[in-house]
Design a protein around this nucleic acid. Structure first.
Lengths: 234, 234
DNA sequence: TCCTGGTATATTGTATACAATATTCCGAAA
DNA sequence: TTTCGGAATATTGTATACAATATACCAGGA
């Protein structure tokens, strides 16, 4: 029939995985916390079997660590880890931007345009809850970046980026707090968009790399500020 | 106690995974073949449970594809897939070489030197079986490349490269057949080694990229030759 | 008090049973 | 002959039971 369904898996085990992934990324199970299979099974209303599969998968993706006979823990990220990840993101997303410049469709450009505009206009929105705002920002930002990855036309590259970007939001939400950082971020988006429109791969890559390094620096600064302000950890 | 053990998992399920991985990479289960859980379980002398976990893990790594309610198949690679992978390898290994240039230790250089020498001298060896020869070549080549990845000092980069390089040998063994290609390959190894010794990251990267692109071209040529010679597929 | 050993408990790892789903095969009707 | 059910079979997906292992707890001796 059709091999076109690359929907991966379907129900339950896959559902558990998606849910677990969300919980980890949104920080519901904070880094370092133990992930006891039976508890997860209860939380998610299934048996341990699909939970186990989800954990194995999450471990392969680097979201959790599995210690033999001792179980899984939500992976925690040291500063060194974050540096590694941002270094790779710069490399991979920069490359994606470079490739995208010569292949991106106008539909994809439109989608990015819309996402960039939404991010800009949201500066003057007022959200009911801070949470909603972060969600909005993360969502549109993801569209922007994912569209580039897709436009690069390398599926493996997309998969790898998804892995790397799957870092607990907790580490990234700082990014979205201050107006100044958001403005600069928006500026980068526009620069990247321009370069892509002009088909200038080198500029697209350079701007993407700067964009990511800027994000990295903001993150590290906030972490430093936080750790000196409240060394006790929540 | 010690978190230092990053031995990942330990027995059985992990063992099955390692074994499955080997079987896939060595081409024992050829691309496209169905991987029925019970058969694997019998083959490996365990129940379906650990097999399942191994399959999930292998799927996360891209070695197999899992279709919901229909099972797993050994992933097959189109020419487009191979191009994607080599593109990423060039990017990632090039970057690794660049990073390695400023951090590599003399012990690591020695290891690479030994591997390169072994590959050179093996040109005049005679092996009992062709299989042994390929194994020898693959092994030493792996040492050369893995050492660079390690020297780059980015664990995630190492993990990603392991994923990408985990392509059925079947697709790569052509590479090792002819003397001429091996000589050129050896030349690249020497160039990379020199650049690393001199701490010249840019050259190391450039040579590494060329090395990989050369490998890609050899592979594509042999595939083309093969497919025109025997279009019927085994 | 501090260490030591051993038992109790908690949790993981694997096997098996059964349910859900897909695939195959076969016969009847057009 | 072809096509369409529809049972029979094969295989996956999930739950549960039990074994293996690690952790926590407690008593006894130094």
């Amino acid at each position: 029939m059709e091999d076109l369904y690359t929907k991966e898996e379907s129900s339950s085990a896959d559902h558990v995985y998606q849910r677990l992934r969300r919980l980890l990324i949104e920080g519901f199970y904070p880094p370092g916390s133990r992930l006891v299979e039976e508890r997860l099974a209860n939380d998610l209303g299934v048996s341990r079997t699909p939970v186990r599969q989800a954990l194995v998968r999450a471990a392969a993706e680097g979201l959790v660590q599995i210690f033999p006979n001792r179980g899984a823990v939500a992976r925690s990220f040291s500063v060194a880890d974050l540096l590694e990840m941002y270094d790779l993101r710069a490399l991979l997303e920069g490359h994606a931007a470079y490739l995208a410049a010569s292949r991106i469709t106008s539909a994809q450009l439109d989608r990015m345009e819309a996402a960039a505009t939404a991010l800009e206009e949201s500066l003057s929105y007022t959200f009911e809850r801070r949470e909603d705002e972060v969600h909005f920002l993360v969502e549109h930002n993801a569209v922007f970046h994912q569209t580039i990855a897709e436009a690069a036309g390398n599926q493996r590259l997309v998969a790898m980026l998804n892995q790397i970007v799957a870092v607990p939001l907790q580490f990234r939400s700082f990014y979205w707090y201050r107006t100044e950082e958001r403005q600069i971020s928006n500026f980068f988006h526009r620069s990247i968009l321009n370069a892509l429109r002009l088909g200038d791969g080198d500029r697209a890559r350079a701007m993407m790399r700067e964009h990511i390094f800027y994000g990295r620096d903001v993150l590290l600064q906030s972490r430093r500020a936080e750790s000196s302000a409240a060394p006790g950890e929540e």
